[in-house]
Design a protein around this nucleic acid. Structure first.
Lengths: 359, 359
DNA sequence: ATGAAAGCGCTAACAC
DNA sequence: GTGTTAGCGCTTTCAT
C-alpha cells in the first residue's frame, strides 16, 4: 500500500490535495506533530518512535506533500532562488546553472530559471520577485543587471547577486569572470603570433563606471606591444552568430584589412568563421579568430576555435553561495568575487609559434 | 514622490515588506478595498474614483507588491507554469520557451524553467511541483516525460503537458512535432539525391508503445524506395555533438561505408560534420548529412546544414494553451496535437537534384 | 511527549 | 460604496 490513495477522497470534492490536517486525522495525532515529524525536528524534540512511524506511514498513504504557498507564507521564505537570464539560446549558462543547482541543493534551496530580457516597462515576472515568490535572485546579462527594476528589488532588501556586475550599487553582490584579462590574453596571443592589425568585434555595451571588459584588455595588450589602437578595427554588432558574421563582412570590405579578430564570444566567433569561409578566406592561414567563453561547440567548428575559457561551474557555485549568504544574512566576506580565465588554444589561430602569412 | 519610501519604516523592524494592511492604513480604508482596487475589480464592482486614487497612490508610495505566497494560498493558484527541461545546453528550447512565455502572459501566467533531468530518486524540484508551487507543468525530454514522478503528478490532478509525449497516460496531454514524417522527409531527400546506403545516428530511446520517431520514418522511406533496412547502419550514441562525432567515426571504420547520414538532431549533426572533416571527407561531395531541429547554428556550419525544421514557436504556444485549458478545467479539444515539420535544404547534401559521386 | 491555538498576508462572502 | 470576517495550510510558541 505504498502509492495508493493518491487523491484525497471526500464525498463531494474530488481531487483536493491532502493537507497536514488529513494526515493528522489519519494518524490520530495533531497537526503540530505532523509538522515536527516531517520536518525532521522529531528526533531533536520529543516524539516517540511509535507516533513518528505512524505519521510517516499515514503521510505516505495519502501521498501527502506540504503545500508550498502555505509553508512559504508561514516561514517567510520559499527556499527557491531564481536565475534571471537574458535568453536560453546561449549554452554558456547551461553549466553555470547546473553548478548552481548542485550548490543550492546542498543548502536546501531549489533553483529555477526565468529567461527574461528585462525591458523597461516589461518584465512581467518582476511581480513575482517583488511578491517574494523567490528568496533571492541571480541576474545575468547587461540589460538585466542594469535594469532599474533589479536595483529596486535590491533596495527593498531582496538578495541579489549579479553575474558580471557593473555599477556601484552596494546592495547588489557581484560574481564575475575577469573579462579584462581575457581580452588581454586573447589579444596578446594574436600579437605573439605576429598579427599587427587585430580587430575586435563586440556587443553594444551600456555605459558603466566600473565595468572592465574585453575591450580594455584588448587595448592593454595593444599598448603593451606598442601597437596603435585603431577605432576602425573595433566593430559593434548584435550579440549573435549572425551579428558576428556581419561584423566580419564589414571589416572585410573596409579599407584597412585586419589579419585577425578577437570576437566578443564564441557564438559571434562561429558567425565570423562562417563569414570568412563564405569569402574564401582560410582560417587560420588568411585570418585568425579568437573566441570567448569556452563553449563545447568550439571543439566542433571548422577549424576548432581558440578561445578564452571561463570557469562556468565556479561562477554558478559562487553566485549561489554568495546569494544564500545574503539571504540568510550571514556576514559576507568579499562581496565581489573575480574569477580567472584561461586561454584555450585550438586551431583557429594556428599553433603556438606559427606565424600568419600576411602583415 | 514616486519611488520613495520603498521600505516599510517602523521603529524597530526594518525591511519588512509593506502589506496590504499597511496600504489600507495609509489610505484610510480597509484591506478589502485595497484588494478590490489593486486587482482591477474596482470598476466592475463599486469603489468611488476618489478612494481608488487614494489607494493607488498609497500603494505606490509604499512600493507595495502583493505577497505571492499569501495570494497563492488564498486563491489556490500561483499563476506560474513551469517548463521541466532536460538541460539548458540545447538551444532548441529557447524558441519554444519564448513563445510559451508570450502565450502564457496573455493569459496572466508567468513561465519559469526547471532544468532538471528527472532521475529516479532525484528530482529535488519534485517537491515544489507536488507542493503546488506551480499550477501546471510542461515536460520535455524522454526521461522526464516517462518519469514515474511526473506520472504521479498527473495522477494527483496536476495539469501536465508533455512535449513529444510517449505512453498512454490519458491524464497527460501531449503536443508533439511529427518526428516520423521528419525522418521520412530527411531520408527521402537523401534517396532522391541518389544515396543508397544511408546511416541513421540516433539517441538511445526508452521503449514506448506509442512513440513514432525519426527512425520509423527512416524505415518507411527506405521501404518505399525498395531499399533494405540495414541495422549496421543505425548507430545509437549519446545525444551531444561529441556523440554525433563518435558515431560517424564508428561508421567510417565499419566495413559497409554509408554515403550519407541522417542525424538525430542538429547538435549531433555538428559532431558529424566535424568527424567527416577530421577524416578528410568533403561534405556533401563525399558524404551527405541531414540534421533535425532547424537550429540557427545550422546556417553557420561548414557547410550549412540541410535539416528538418520544427515549428518551435507553435510548439511552445500550443503547449501553454493546452496546459492552461487543463489548469482552468476547460473542456479540451484534441488532447494530442501533432505539428508538421518541413525539410530545410541548405548545403550539407548538395543542392536539389545534385547527385552524390559514389553509390 | 503531544495538543491547542494563533497567525503569516491575502481574497471573497456577506454585512451594512 | 465600503468594512467585517473568515479562512487558505502551515509552523510554532505555549500549555498540559
Amino acid at each position: 500500500m505504498t502509492q495508493r490513495n493518491v487523491k484525497h477522497e471526500s464525498p463531494e470534492g474530488r481531487e483536493r490535495a491532502p493537507t497536514s490536517a488529513d494526515v493528522a486525522r489519519l494518524a490520530g495525532v495533531s497537526q503540530a506533530t505532523i509538522s515536527l515529524v516531517l520536518n525532521g525536528r522529531a528526533s531533536n524534540v520529543r516524539i516517540s518512535d511509535e507516533t513518528r512511524d505512524r505519521v510517516i506511514s499515514a503521510a505516505a498513504q495519502l501521498g501527502y506533500a506540504p503545500n508550498h504557498a502555505a509553508r512559504s507564507l508561514r516561514q517567510r521564505s520559499t527556499k527557491i532562488i531564481t536565475f534571471v537570464l537574458p535568453a536560453l539560446d546561449n549554452p554558456y549558462y547551461s553549466d553555470v546553472v547546473s553548478a548552481a543547482q548542485v550548490a543550492a541543493q546542498q543548502h536546501g534551496y531549489a533553483v529555477s530559471v526565468l529567461p527574461t530580457r528585462v525591458k523597461p516597462g516589461g518584465f512581467h515576472a518582476l511581480s513575482l520577485l517583488q511578491g517574494a515568490a523567490f528568496d533571492g535572485i541571480i541576474v545575468a546579462g547587461h540589460e538585466n543587471c542594469a535594469a532599474a527594476e533589479i536595483q529596486q528589488l535590491a533596495a527593498r532588501g531582496i538578495a541579489v547577486v549579479a553575474l558580471q556586475k557593473h555599477g556601484l550599487n552596494p546592495a547588489i553582490h557581484g560574481v564575475s569572470v575577469d573579462l579584462e584579462t581575457g581580452g588581454y590574453l586573447a589579444t596578446r596571443h594574436l600579437i605573439g603570433l605576429g598579427h599587427r592589425r587585430i580587430a575586435h568585434v563586440m556587443e553594444e555595451l551600456p555605459p558603466s563606471e566600473t565595468r572592465r571588459d574585453r575591450v580594455d584588455g584588448y587595448r592593454r595588450a595593444l599598448a603593451e606591444a606598442g601597437l596603435p589602437f585603431d577605432p576602425s578595427l573595433v566593430v559593434i554588432t548584435e550579440n549573435s552568430m549572425d551579428g558576428g558574421c556581419k561584423a566580419i563582412e564589414q571589416l572585410l570590405f573596409g579599407d584597412r584589412l585586419p589579419t585577425a579578430a578577437f570576437m566578443y564570444n564564441d557564438q559571434m566567433a562561429i558567425g565570423a568563421l562562417h563569414a570568412l569561409r563564405t569569402h574564401a578566406l582560410t582560417v587560420p592561414d588568411d585570418f585568425a579568430v579568437v573566441g570567448f567563453d569556452g563553449l563545447a561547440v568550439g571543439q566542433f567548428t571548422a577549424p576548432p576555435l581558440t578561445t578564452i575559457d571561463h570557469p562556468r561551474e565556479d561562477l554558478g557555485r559562487l553566485a549561489v553561495e554568495t546569494l544564500i549568504d545574503a539571504i540568510e544574512k550571514r556576514p559576507l566576506g568579499a562581496r565581489e568575487r573575480m574569477l580567472p580565465v584561461k586561454l584555450l588554444i585550438r586551431e583557429s589561430c594556428g599553433g603556438k609559434g606559427a606565424a600568419p602569412n600576411q602583415t
